[in-house]
Simulated scan of single mutants.
Amino acid sequence: MSAVEATADARGGALNDWLRERISHALSEFTAATALVVLFVALSFASPYFLTADNLFNIGAQTAVIAIIAAAQTMVIITRGIDLSVGSVAALAGVAGAMVVRDLGFPLLAATAVAIGVGALAGLLNGLLVTVARIPPFIATLGTMSVGRGLVFIMTGAVGVYGLPRSFQLLGNGEIIGIPFAVVITVLVAVGVAFLLSQTRFGQYTYAMGSNLEAARRSGIAVGRNLTYVYVLAGVLVGLGGMIAASRVNSGQPNYGISLELDVIAAAVIGGASLFGGQGRIVGTIIGAFLIALVRNGAVLLDISIHYQQVIVGLIIWAAVYFDQYRRRRLESRG
């Protein structure tokens, strides 16, 4: 075989791999979207309150928080990492934002910047623990989860932050021409993160690190620096999500976000992100976030215990991870 023929065969194989991967992503997203439509229709018949304007607005606002933080989790998962600290960091950011409004008189925009800053610092801590201290992401973020939760209880004395002005509710409960403001923010975040992952060198490096960290390092990618960037950006989104969550209830709640990591991991995996790294798209994550929000909302409307809700989310995670493994085996067998 000539060098030209070998090059052509290599290019053809790479194209086939790319097509198979694209088809796999599309299949994951289509499956998640189908499940979302089926659940939406089922809840429309199961509860007379589901299609009311108030409930749909509530679903939009609830989805926004899950989707924004799930977008953060997706970036981390693509690098073959995991962030278990999202719930406690979101609570810490929301409480910090609420406290500077109540105690220091900060306007909402400045308080939101404070919350985002808290998230960014937590993300930087996670990134340095993973890249400099070389602690596995699971353990590093587990520690941050514990530290963050402890700090928020220390700051508040385990008591919610109340006495906030009505303007504090704008992020979580405001609307623009009938559309929840939180949904508008979510769309902007989704578009921005999708662009970063698909159209920039940062995104290429993110996927490369998740596919093969050592190969990425040998190809000249500054792995430590770029991986830290991923965690910092994820922290920024978690801080924003935590501020929106606090705004929804017009208070800073130290108990917020307990088990939130399950919802956002489920949203990312349902949407096609692989826990083995190197795969994931924001479109799928948003679909997964809506599905999780509908499960939570429907369970409340149908008076299903929160304990059963946890069982349902756990089963969804199992099913999504199994499907991911099955998809990977199929791709490998065809390769």
Rank of each mutant, 00 (worst) to 15 (best):
G224F: 09
P254H: 08
G172Q: 09
R217H: 10
T63E: 05
L240I: 03
G117H: 04
E5Q: 14
R80A: 15
L27K: 06
R281L: 13
G314E: 06
A33S: 14
L43W: 11
L291Y: 13
I270P: 00
T131Q: 03
T74R: 02
G143K: 08
R225L: 14
L301S: 04
D9P: 05
T144I: 08
G257C: 11
L129Q: 10
L233S: 02
P48L: 02
A222Y: 11
G252K: 06
D324W: 09
I304V: 14
G210T: 09
F50M: 00
A53H: 09
R11Y: 14
V114M: 07
F45L: 09
D324M: 05
I23S: 11
A245S: 14
F50T: 00
F40R: 01
V118M: 06
L233M: 03
S198T: 15
S88F: 11
A71H: 13
G172N: 04
T141N: 01
P48C: 03
T31V: 15
D17V: 12
L108S: 02
V238G: 00
Q325R: 15
S167Y: 12
A268S: 12
A289S: 13
A35D: 08
S167Q: 12
E214C: 01
W18K: 12
T186G: 01
V313T: 12
V313Y: 11
A32R: 11
F106W: 07
A70C: 05
L56F: 12
A234G: 00
T131L: 01
L151E: 06
V76P: 08
Y308G: 00
V238T: 06
G235K: 03
R296Q: 15
S44C: 05
V41C: 11
M1H: 12
D9V: 14
A319F: 11
V295I: 15
V4F: 13
T31A: 13
A98F: 11
A70G: 07
G271F: 13
V183A: 01
L240R: 06
A14I: 06
W318L: 14
G123V: 04
A10C: 07
L240G: 01
L302E: 05
V41R: 04
T285K: 05
D17Y: 13
F40P: 00
Q204T: 12
N126R: 05
L108T: 02
A267S: 13
I23A: 14
S198W: 12
Y231T: 00
V95K: 02
L19E: 08
T156E: 02
V86D: 06
A110S: 06
G94L: 07
G210Q: 02
V311L: 14
A215Q: 03
F57D: 01
G12P: 10
G123K: 05
E332C: 03
T156D: 02
I69F: 11
G163V: 07
F138W: 06
T141S: 07
T112I: 04
L56G: 00
L291P: 00
E29A: 10
R149I: 08
D263S: 10
N55E: 06
I82T: 08
F181W: 12
G13I: 07
I282K: 09
Q309V: 13
G174S: 02
R134I: 08
S259R: 15
I185A: 00
R329N: 12
A72W: 10
Q62K: 15
L51T: 11
T34D: 04
L27R: 09
I185E: 02
I312F: 14
D9K: 15
L275A: 01
A182W: 14
